[in-house]
């Protein structure tokens, strides 16, 4: 039997073919931003709020999304691969948005 208390950093994952494989926990930080060619009326509205606060030197405000994802994967490359698909298909719409993924240790 495996002593799961040895490390909470690993998840023991049983596969019929491969036997036991190790997966590591990762914490991903995903930044989704509007492409420069897309107007951001929300950002413009916030900028006008800033102007009312007195910050008239603000040149532009662009509002995006920040998403945190906890996941487990065999290695960093595999985690990035999965996250890129998630971003391309769900977190961001490539027609109007760009994204950036930062991967950190999730343990």
């Amino acid at each position: 039997m495996i002593d799961l208390s040895l490390s909470d950093r690993y998840i023991y994952n049983y596969h019929k073919v491969e036997g036991f494989s190790l997966k590591q926990k990762y914490q991903a930080r995903i930044y989704v931003t509007l492409r420069p060619s897309v107007l951001d009326p929300a950002g413009t509205a916030v900028q006008s709020g800033l102007a009312h606060m007195g910050y008239t030197d603000v040149e532009s405000v662009r509002i995006g999304k920040y998403i945190e994802v906890s996941l487990s994967a065999t290695d960093e490359t595999e985690a990035h691969k999965q996250l890129d698909v998630m971003c391309d298909q769900l977190f961001a719409n490539p027609v109007i948005e760009n994204y950036r993924v930062e991967l950190g240790d999730g343990s």
């Binding site: 897309v38 107007l39 951001d40 009326p41 929300a42 509205a45 719409n93 027609v95």
Partner: peptide, 17 residues
């Protein structure tokens, strides 16, 4: 349908919010 890729382009926030 645009999100599903059946139609091109995307619908974004109205110009005047």
């Amino acid at each position: 349908l645009t999100e599903a890729g059946l139609l091109p382009g995307a619908l974004v926030r109205n110009r005047d919010m």
